[in-house]
Amino acid sequence: MSEETYTFRIQRNTPTGNGRFDTRWQEFKVTLPTTSTVLSALEEIKARQDGTLTFRQSCRSAICGSCAMRISGRTRLACKTQVGSVARDKVIEVGPQTNQPVLKDLAIDIRPFFERVRRVDPFLKDGPESAKKVTKTAYDQVNQVTQCIMCGCCYSDCTMAEVSPAFLGPAALAKSFRFVSDPREGMKTERLEFLSQPDNMWSCSRCTMCVEVCPKDVKPMEAIVKLRTRGLEKGLRSGVGARHALAFHEDIQQNGDLNEFTLMMRSVGLGGTLAELGSALHLMKKGKIPSPFPHKAEKLGELRKIYDILEKNPLDVETKAAEIVPE
């Protein structure tokens, strides 16, 4: 096993009272096999160089969810990340998760994250929609999302959480899908109604960041898309998100292009549009307001074909999960 000397640039956050911190970057040099994990490197530093370095860890095997932190530009589990795979010129930069309050050094306050999870009533409910018997494939959907270990990687790197702290976030939404997709769950519609409210499932911008950073292959964004589809199927179409999606769909299906001029009106309604008038005037001055007349794309027939295929092969939101495809 080949060894290398790595430089760890670690963000130190020392609490100075009243929620304030003294933040600085400190460098440590450690010699390790390239296949060592970032967590063992941090343990090495704590044991032999600086006992004050603070981070959470427990299982060392990517299953307890304690050790999520920013490593070389994205949030990862320190115990699952090999130093050799993230070093740039033998430098590895480590900081705490983002979008959440810091406690000390690399440890964040996990309470706000779990508060969001609690908002979705994270437990199976009895009710009129409970299936009586399960089959072999009943949990194919459930199994994908129950891989979640609540480490917070997705929330830390969520681009929507960054701009909108009220957003429920990918982990809580995936947790909600865990119940909505469970045949034994009795209150699926009630859950979808809750999720259709502002800041919940329709607030995701589908940037796929959560899918990319998830260390357990939970694919939160796919769960969110499936929740939306199920919500629409249940006729939950009155919220801004749902109306926006439907208007979008209508334009593409009819014209192959968006009518952005009327899209807003159809999504947020007259009141919402008037409220945004200020920004609209500002945009108009800059020439950013699109033409009010619908533009028809060429070769609409081709597009119809795509629609036909999709309609014949609908996204299966009930049971079958995507096969686990061996790479």
Binding site: R56, S58, C59, S61, I63, C64, G65, S66, I110, F114, I149, M150
Partner: peptide
């Protein structure tokens, strides 16, 4: 945190 307990392993 309860979910970090080693039973998870």
């Amino acid at each position: 945190h309860p979910l970090r307990s080693h039973s998870c392993a």
